[in-house]
């Protein structure tokens, strides 16, 4: 297990706080929710590389993740954890970002294998993204080539502990420093890079807007962004409209 490598950012890093509310009842409620969140984790294993081979043993009878409340899930909408298991090529990264953005928060990213940490044996490759946390906030890295199921479970348990304590909120970081992550993405994918999810609008909608959500990169994005607004239901009766 390695420390999360923080890359230099343009803005201030928000300190990680366990948000406590003053109302004791609300506090209990928050505790309950956080506990439930820590005890029920649905993972989406994005099997990009060899690390995936270690996941079935950790899920099945020998190690049985389900006793921790961890289950595999299929679509990003349902999942809490994005497991990136192995080297990430540029093409794959696009999909990983798309998938990450489609997940519902709170969401956690776990990088498995050395390749996600620093490129591992592919560090010389022109086609591989080296550091996953340049492109999205990573909660836990589980290093190793490949990490054994014990290591995977240990990593998951640490994540669970973080969640229970309310420390695992790096997903908020993505909204608050979206410009930073987008900058990295744009450098890799080119200026016209765009995902279907409107992160900025989401940040506004959920009150996650931070000082670094917008910046030069988002300005670039807005130049060639195709519309992403939802198709709102419209009761557009011509006669009534005309009268109005």
């Amino acid at each position: 297990m390695t420390e999360l490598i923080k890359t230099p950012r343009t803005g201030e890093t928000l300190p990680v706080k366990a948000g406590k509310r003053t109302n004791p009842l609300a506090n209990v409620f928050d505790e309950l929710v956080r506990f439930a969140q820590s005890r029920s984790l649905f993972m989406l294993h994005y099997c990009t590389g060899c690390g995936a081979i270690e996941l079935p043993p950790s899920m099945t009878s020998r190690f049985d993740m389900e006793r921790l409340g961890i289950q595999p899930m299929v679509s990003p909408r349902q999942a809490d954890i994005l497991l990136v298991t192995g080297y990430v090529s540029v093409k794959t990264l696009k999909r990983i970002i798309l998938t990450y953005e489609q997940m519902g928060s709170p969401k956690y990213v776990i990088g498995i294998c050395s390749c996600t940490v620093n490129g591992g044996m592919y560090w010389q490759s022109y086609a591989t993204a080296k550091k996953l946390n340049d492109y999205m906030p990573v909660d836990i890295y589980i290093a190793g080539c490949m990490p054994r199921p014990e290591a995977v479970i240990a990593g998951l348990r640490e994540l669970m502990e973080n969640i229970r304590q309310g420390k695992a909120d790096s997903w908020k970081d993505y909204y608050r420093h979206y410009d930073h992550y987008l900058g990295h993405q744009q450098r890799l994918f080119g200026e016209t890079w765009q995902t279907p999810t409107d992160v900025i609008a989401e940040a506004r909608h959920y009150g996650l807007f931070g000082p670094d959500t917008l910046g030069t990169h988002t300005a670039l994005l807005e130049q060639h962004q195709r519309p992403l607004e939802a198709l709102e239901m419209k009761v557009d009766i011509p006669e009534l409209m005309a009268r109005r």
Binding site: P76, R77, R95, L98, T99, P196, P227, E229, L231
Partner: peptide, 18 residues
């Protein structure tokens, strides 16, 4: 909790860009 309406192309397609 709160939810946000999204565009129909923000949709699961196995990682494909719609």
């Amino acid at each position: 909790g709160r939810s946000k309406r999204v565009h129909q192309l923000d949709n699961y397609a196995g990682g494909h860009f719609l």
